[in-house]
Write a protein that binds this DNA or RNA. Structure first.
Lengths: 207, 207
DNA sequence: TCAGACATGTAAGTCGTTACATGATTCA
DNA sequence: TGAATCATGTAACGACTTACATGTCTGA
């Protein structure tokens, strides 16, 4: 009967980026890919309609890029948009749809040969270690800057003046990713150990 | 032009449960809610059509519950179904859509009052600690059983004979959840500490 | 007798991705 | 001149949830 409203967070992600600076859809996409890819993604198919809707709702304005002949829409956040974004920020976060395929696999893996389990873990470990490395680089830069109270060049170029509170929140966000990824790597190591011990034991039995 | 094939894992989750024992849709749903809820969910709207499709594809068979007048469909996995499931198990797991709303919030939280950040963290911490507690109970039971080579009564009742390899895989799955949840709690503690220090510092400045 | 669990299913809608269509600008 | 990047959009589809519709059985 009633419209089934689900809550897409896309608009808030977009609004949050626009709160830094006015941008085109294309720039927003690029920024998400560069800075948020480990924990957020948007496709053009979501992005452009969302921007359209933001304008309709009075949360952003569209202005045609003044300079070029090239068609380029620059979106700016409005005061209403800023208020809406801030409201979301302070709201309790609803817990995400939990779906972890690898955990499911191991839960159901009763009949899987142990060596296949080991190979699954090895793949996952490599993948997570790659992520850990990119995180580590970001952390090195950010926490050095925070310690010395210096602005971060890379961030500064993108965001303009970056306050130390903003850097603190960046670091907290980053640390979420780092602790999560480290936990996954630890899990791999621990599980590989368990499976190898089980393998040895069953080999001994078969001698 | 071509059919856009996306890969739903629902069928494998169902097949995996059916590989333990024949069940009705309702029972499958209950089992997921009881045992997998921290990392997997299915709705009836997904479940029943998936079961239908499994039967059509020859991966499961439906038999009408013999006993009662109550309409009840019992699904059993076929050999083809078992093969299909095993194939998925051994396949490399494709990485999930990354979307973490809380991490996004902190990334974008530059203007958020620190006390709101603290309250976000406090909520999340409580929630994760609840999960940690249910995990801890499961772990206690499982690892005791593994150590003593004993069957686990609760599991045994559900699954019939539970092999020690199966219990090992259960434990590995469980440990994934535990390490993840512990990491999130650690992140909360660490972040709360950082924010409180920042708060103190800014208060001192304002004196 | 009546609440709560058992049990099956569908319709409508939301969310999100993929693939395509289109064209301008830059730079080697 | 031609490849890469900048740039905007949409159509079609797949995945999933919510809300509803319907009825049975059990036990207090």
């Amino acid at each position: 009967m009633n419209t089934v409203r689900r809550k897409s967070k896309t608009r808030f992600a977009v609004l949050g980026l626009l709160s830094w600076q006015a941008m085109s859809g294309y720039q927003i996409k690029k920024m998400i890919e560069m800075g948020l890819s480990h924990f957020w993604a948007e496709s053009y198919g979501q992005l452009y309609p969302t921007l359209e809707k933001l304008v309709q709702d009075g949360l952003a304005t569209r202005s045609c890029g003044a300079t070029g002949k090239r068609k380029k829409h620059v979106f700016s956040i409005t005061e209403a948009g800023r208020a809406c974004f801030l409201e979301w920020l302070a709201e309790p976060t609803d817990q995400p749809r939990m779906r972890n395929e690898l955990q499911l696999k191991f839960f159901l893996a009763g009949d899987l040969p142990i060596e296949h389990g080991l190979s699954l873990l090895a793949d996952y470990k490599t993948q997570q270690e790659d992520i850990a490395q990119t995180y580590a680089e970001s952390e090195r830069i950010l926490s050095a800057a925070l310690d010395h109270g210096e602005a971060v060049e890379d961030l500064d170029r993108v965001l303009g003046a970056t306050s130390s509170q903003q850097m603190l929140f960046f670091l907290i966000s980053l640390r979420h990713g780092i602790l999560a990824v480290d936990a996954r790597i630890d899990w791999c190591k621990e599980s590989i150990g368990m499976l190898k011990r089980a393998q040895k034991k069953s080999r001994k039995r078969n001698d």
